[in-house]
Simulated assay, not measured.
Amino acid sequence: MGQIASEVERRLANLGFVLPEPAAPLANYVPAVRSGALLLISGQLPLGPDGKLAEDHVGKVGAGVDEAAASHAAALCALNCLAQARAHLGDLDRIGRCLRLGGFINCAEDFTRLAVVMNGASDLMATALGERGTHARSTVGVAQLPLGACVEVEAIFEITP
């Protein structure tokens, strides 16, 4: 096993997470855009290390996908946001702060525990980045997501020189 490059990656490894290869865009967009000190990460799906969606991460939360699986899916989305950031920056220790996460939950019409699902992403980001991982957040329920995923997460990071 190779040397882990950053403190952030060491923290993730201690949780049992390894950054995957960043996913290629599914349409006409780029996975990350930097503007000044900001790095905006396009919405990431809960793709596993094999680049695929697990069966329990496809469908609607509250109607086929349980809350625990959806929360784990949100954590994978956050992990994929970090993978995109590393691909763009080369070193996750250059993240000064996670400013915002946006979460989209593919859910049944009567499912209201969106915030609990999104905590999977927020908790992973806070653990990975420590104090720099506390962030503002929006979470919305949606009718559908790409590939039928149950969760999608986007991120905005402040970058240090």
Rank of each mutant, 00 (worst) to 15 (best):
P25Y: 07
L26I: 15
L26C: 08
A27C: 09
N28Q: 10
A32C: 13
V33P: 06
V33D: 13
R34S: 05
S35N: 11
G36W: 00
A37P: 12
L39A: 10
L39F: 04
L47I: 05
P49S: 13
P49T: 09
G51N: 06
L53P: 02
E55P: 14
H57L: 07
V58G: 11
V58S: 09
G59D: 01
G62Q: 09
A63G: 06
A63R: 08
G64W: 07
D66M: 09
E67Y: 04
A68Q: 15
A68L: 08
A68R: 12
A70I: 08
A73V: 03
N80V: 11
N80Q: 12
Q84Y: 04
R86D: 04
R86I: 04
L92E: 03
L92Y: 06
D93N: 05
R94L: 07
C98F: 07
L101D: 06
F104E: 15
I105L: 02
N106K: 02
C107H: 07
A108K: 04
T112F: 12
T112M: 12
R113T: 10
R113F: 07
L114W: 04
L114S: 03
A115I: 03
V116E: 10
M118R: 13
N119E: 15
G120W: 01
A121E: 09
S122K: 07
M125F: 06
M125Y: 01
M125N: 00
A126N: 14
A126L: 12
R132D: 04
H135N: 12
H135D: 10
V140L: 15
A143G: 15
L147A: 13
V151F: 08
V153W: 00
